[in-house]
Design a protein around this nucleic acid. Structure first.
Length: 474
RNA sequence: GGCGCGAUAGCAAAGCGGUUAUGCCGCGGCCUGCAAAGCCGUUUAGACCAGUUCGACUCUGGUUCGCGCCUCCA
């Protein structure tokens, strides 16, 4: 029985889908104006793991992860680069696809782009205006009136009073209340715009605000009421809070000016993943302390990065450092080493088997991947001891459910990303191993050790066994 | 200032009111020509102060410290 920590309730709850056997899940994706960093990698990997486990639990999952391809920063960056917005966003969508594929992330079922759903946003804003939840300001911007939505703050645990007290942004004079947020931004010179019926000085021309994008896309693709909504912890407020306010107000049948947020709940389970940190500080664009995925992949194998992410619980903070990546690599090596030299096929899992049951219990407990991984190490130990093909098959099969351990062990162990791999390319490893074995045969251990040292300096470690000598990268 | 989260051994990271988490590192042994890998064993825990309890790392309260959100952010 799957339990999920629901941010809305602040507790773990038994997962019950709206439609038996089916799950609708929406995750806030990327704003595509730059390369993805490790924080983005965590969202992608975490919710990939979630969708995989839901599918392994026999749910039919519709996983939607949006792409924000219109936004202030995108416009700014495109202007700086002297390229069109479409060129810029396509470039970074391609880069994102490349990065996520390397991390073993299965493509979401749907990846809607904001610019393709502007009509839906406009009609949602119109509904909000009609119901009295939104108003057109004198400059043509359309704002959401937070006072009219009774449930405002229910997700983030904030009250409007506290928010106003902590207000540290200059008040936009066009707003009725400082906490009101923008739904539609009136057109500015040299900016893309869409026609709308909202009126104002620019006859309604403008573009959508960020929050309305997700409300419109999720309700169009998953309906007004769906199972799971995910994203990074930093989106809890204001983004997700605003999504709730928009969707529940717009989709309610009530035409009153206030709304309790109960009669037409948008989402049953809200999931938020923890941050990636550097030196105990959040990794973020604004702090400038981020590492892009592709930078890290120059030094570490993508599966090591995935393993590093899944080693921590998804809600915990995750500190990034070379030492921690090295540690993850050593741990993953142990798992692959156990499978080395065995012919293992992924098989159906008998969930009554004790390790399989432990793995399932861990995953069902709010996706406790650290505990699930401990089960894999237990199996690896068993495989090392007994060479049991059944245990090896179970190890590979369970790991496969969270996107790990599916490569050929030798390919992984010998292909580990190595920055200084040029030096050893010139060396013929297999030839040197033969030479060394000849030296060993004739008890010329000095020569054998010389060859081993030569390879070691090139980052290649030899391992002798009764079945012969194998090698791997350090 | 408001709201929230956290504090576990050298490092990382889980569960659990009493019984080995796990991985890396260290130490001893086995194996090996020697190593590596593997196996066996093993040293390091639960910020601090109270309380509940037969018994607390685990529950409750407080203290201290750290982090996050309150502004774009995964």
């Amino acid at each position: 029985m799957l339990k999920i920590y629901n941010t809305l309730a602040r507790e773990k709850q038994v997962f019950t889908p709206i439609v038996p056997g089916k799950v609708g899940m929406y995750v806030c994706g990327m704003t595509v104006y730059d390369f993805c960093h490790l924080g983005h990698a965590r969202v992608m990997v975490v919710f990939d793991m979630v969708s995989r486990w839901l599918r392994a639990s026999d749910y039919e999952v519709t996983y939607v992860r949006n792409i924000t391809d219109i936004d202030d920063k995108i416009i700014k960056r495109a202007n700086e680069n002297g390229e069109t917005i479409a060129q810029l966003t396509q470039r970074f969508i391609d880069a994102m696809d490349e990065d996520s594929a390397k991390l073993g992330v299965i493509r979401p079922t749907l990846e809607p782009k904001a610019t393709e759903f502007v009509d839906g946003m406009i009609s949602m804003i119109s509904a909000l205006i009609d119901k009295g939840f939104a108003y057109v300001a004198d400059n043509g911007d359309v704002f959401y009136s937070v006072n009219n939505f009774e449930g405002y703050g229910k997700l983030s645990g904030k009250s409007l009073e506290d928010l106003r007290a902590g207000e540290r942004v200059e008040v936009d004079t066009h707003k009725k209340d400082p906490m009101d947020f923008v739904l539609w931004k009136s057109v500015k010179p040299n900016e893309p715009s869409w026609d709308s019926p909202f009126g104002g000085p620019n006859n309604g021309k403008g573009r959508p605000g960020w929050h309305i994008e997700c409300s419109a896309m999720s309700s169009q693709l998953l309906g007004n009421h769906f199972d799971i909504h995910g994203g990074g912890q930093d989106l809890q407020f204001p983004h997700h809070e605003n999504e709730i306010a928009q969707s529940e107000a717009a989709n309610s049948l009530a035409s009153t000016h206030t709304h309790d947020g109960q009669s037409c709940q948008m989402v049953n389970y809200w999931m938020h993943n923890g941050f990636v940190r550097v030196d105990d500080e959040k990794m973020s664009k604004s702090l400038g302390n981020f590492f892009t995925i592709r930078t890290v992949l120059e030094q570490y194998d993508a599966e090591v990065v995935r393993f590093f992410i899944l080693r921590a619980h998804y809600r915990s903070p995750l500190n990034y450092s070379d030492q921690h990546l090295d540690d993850a690599k050593a741990a993953l090596n142990r798992l692959y080493t156990a499978l080395r030299g065995l012919v293992v096929e992924v098989a159906d899992i008998d969930w009554r088997q004790s390790q399989a049951a432990s793995f399932k219990a861990a995953m069902d407990d709010d996706f406790n991947t650290p505990e699930a991984l401990a089960v894999l190490f237990d199996l690896a130990n068993e495989v090392n001891k007994t060479k049991s093909l059944a245990s090896a098959a179970l190890l590979k099969s369970l790991a496969g459910l969270i996107g790990l351990l599916q490569r050929d062990p030798d390919e992984y162990l010998q292909g580990l990303a190595s920055v200084n791999s040029n030096a050893d390319e010139a060396l013929n490893v297999d030839q040197l191993i033969i030479q060394r074995n000849e030296a060993k045969q004739s008890k010329n251990f000095a020569e054998a050790d010389r060859i081993r040292k030569l390879l070691a300096e090139a980052g290649i470690i030899l391992e002798d066994s009764p079945q012969g000598t194998t090698w791997r990268r350090a």
